[in-house]
């Protein structure tokens, strides 16, 4: 464990808590893409199957359980409890166009052709594009509540911090995982436009308005 990965995981946890609080407090999931939340639930389910087989640390096990539980809780809140506030008309990204390529790529480019490894690789590829429906929804509505932009900033920062973690592990631990690094780069690049808007607007108290 290193400071980059620890802050990355905490930023990830913060994002999930911000989102749950936003939905629970405002009793509304307006402006949130349910499709992205479904993709995240698929990502954690397919990545953390090793919960049953390998024990790495109490921290690792605890965080995996939290990520899986909160991702399903968020999907439940959006599609069941606060279903009436779900923005179905704008949340129209075809997630099969993300899932199918991730499955194919995981079958073709992986480290080891075993069930657990292919599912792990699929989850890495899918996570790198899982935010697209959310960014698509923000671009369609042309704006985002500030709480939603804080959620996106924390979520985007988590993988950016992981990039620093991988640099650290390459030099300090002679360790690297090319698939995770390439997917992590793609994932972070997708946030660049948002990061720019967040830093130049939201941090100055303005609303996040996308140039229509």
């Amino acid at each position: 464990m290193n400071i980059f990965r620890l802050f990355g995981d905490l930023s990830h946890l913060l994002a999930i808590i911000i989102l749950l609080l936003k939905i629970w407090k405002t009793r509304s999931c307006a402006g949130i893409s349910g499709k992205s939340q479904i993709l995240f639930a698929i990502v954690y389910t397919s990545r953390y199957l090793d919960l049953m087989t390998t024990y790495i640390s109490a921290y690792n096990t605890f965080m995996k359980i939290v990520f899986v539980a909160t991702s399903y809780a968020t999907v439940f809140l959006m599609y069941m409890k606060f279903k009436a506030t779900y923005d179905r008309n704008h949340d129209t990204f075809r997630i099969e166009f993300l899932i199918v390529p991730a499955v194919i790529l995981a079958l073709v480019i992986n480290q080891e052709f075993t069930v657990l490894e292919v599912l792990w690789t699929f989850s890495i590829y899918l996570e790198s594009v899982a935010i697209l429906p959310q960014l698509f929804l923000v671009s369609k509505t042309g704006e985002a509540e500030s709480i939603t932009s804080h959620y996106l900033f924390a979520l985007g920062s988590y993988r950016a911090l992981y990039l620093l973690n991988w640099v650290y592990r390459y030099y300090a631990e002679d360790h690297y995982d090319l698939i995770a690094i390439v997917a992590g780069l793609v994932q972070t690049v997708l946030y660049c436009d948002f990061f720019y808007l967040y830093i130049t607007k939201v941090l100055k108290g303005k609303k996040l308005q996308l140039p229509a």
């Binding site: 990520f67 080891e112 360790h175 995770a180």
Partner: peptide
């Protein structure tokens, strides 16, 4: 430098 095969990250 070896490619890792144990996924110890979240």
């Amino acid at each position: 430098i070896e490619q890792s095969n144990m996924h110890d990250e979240l």
